[in-house]
Design a binder for these strands. Sequence first.
DNA 1: ATCTATATTATCAAATTGTTAACTGACCTT
DNA 2: AAGGTCAGTTAACAATTTGATAATATAGAT
Lengths: 226, 226
Amino acid sequence: MEAPIKILIADDEADILEIISFHLIKAGFEVHTAKDGSEAIEKANTYAPDCIILDIMMPKRTGFEVCEYLRSNSQFDKTLIVLLTALNDEASHIKGLELGGDDFITKPISPKVLISRISALFRRLQPSVGQNKVINCNDLSIDLTQYKTTLKGVNYILAKKEFELLYLLAAQPGRVFLRGEILSQVWGNDVIVGDRTIDVHIRKIRAKLGIDCITTVKGVGYKFDY
Amino acid sequence: MEAPIKILIADDEADILEIISFHLIKAGFEVHTAKDGSEAIEKANTYAPDCIILDIMMPKRTGFEVCEYLRSNSQFDKTLIVLLTALNDEASHIKGLELGGDDFITKPISPKVLISRISALFRRLQPSVGQNKVINCNDLSIDLTQYKTTLKGVNYILAKKEFELLYLLAAQPGRVFLRGEILSQVWGNDVIVGDRTIDVHIRKIRAKLGIDCITTVKGVGYKFDY
DNA sequence: ATCTATATTATCAAATTGTTAACTGACCTT
DNA sequence: AAGGTCAGTTAACAATTTGATAATATAGAT
């Protein structure tokens, strides 16, 4: 993870702010706080957080109003909005979600639940960041952390470059990778190797696995298809 | 939205299945159902739904087990998983979210809430999918990132130039492209090829796809019309 | 009917990829 | 240190696919 994920929490109850902040900071987030709706908008503009947790009942501007403001501003297109309230009524739920909220958590808040849910939202948002480095596709499994490839449970030993090439392609099944992309991803930008090199490695992968999981797209590149 | 969003619901209570199905269908989703965990996995593989709603308490396999299975398979990377339970306890919440669930809804279910939340999940998911350079027109789909052309779900392999030509035309259906435009877009400005070359490629596309999706505008050029 | 633009077909040239074998250097064994 | 093994690379050639052109046929317009 490069930059820490920024979260802004807006609630008028100081002790809630404090508790949530504590847990979020402990979970590795960068946390900012606001004590009312106006301050929330202000700080949202200042810090451009990745996620904003809004209490609905707040002075100056309600969570709904802040949510509406944020969603009308393209700058916050990718910002997650979590609404927070003591009210457990359906109407608020629906209103919040329809105003563009991404999730809805009812008080009393369990810090564990809050963090689980926020993590789930981010997991969905940044599939690539997912720490799961195992690709499973039908009966083929490619485990980056173990450099291990199994097919129908049987282990196949691929050389480093073969493995990296297969992993790259399989990470985005169906997508065509240009030869140039493959070279820069697997071999790096400064290394200069010929085009034939890719072919030979592709061939070795096909031969070792014995299945036709890599498709040639003539004049374009290769793609994983299985 | 071209294709309808597919949702799979798994619950062992028939009346719940029915009620939810009814509302989801009314909301414009394509709905499939399963009455236990094993059937859920089966149908997930068959229909590749965009969203799977899982009851936690189910015979054969619990919602947790199904969730775990789905999340370990890259085929379902982009599938939303919503967990459903009568239990309102925090432990299930956390377990579900940590297993990769995207949302968690407690029974008794309000159809309105359910649909609001699913819509919210999809709204959030769309932007990343929106990057796709896929042209969809009736039952014809042209995917630039995959260099893949399908008609009624059947894959047709076009050569590079054929594909690029079709993609160019289909990107702006109805618009007539002059021969000069086609040449400079597909072949580039420095390459010099004759006019007949375009005709030949157009013909190959028509022959391969078997449909008349490209119209000749005599004396002017060609246009995509389908 | 004639003229023009496009469609079709066949053919050849060019580009791309597949395959095999050989070379190099790193690493391991003895 | 010599010999062996293996990953990675390249070269050379074969196989295949694709692209372009020319020649001819057809259709559309005036």
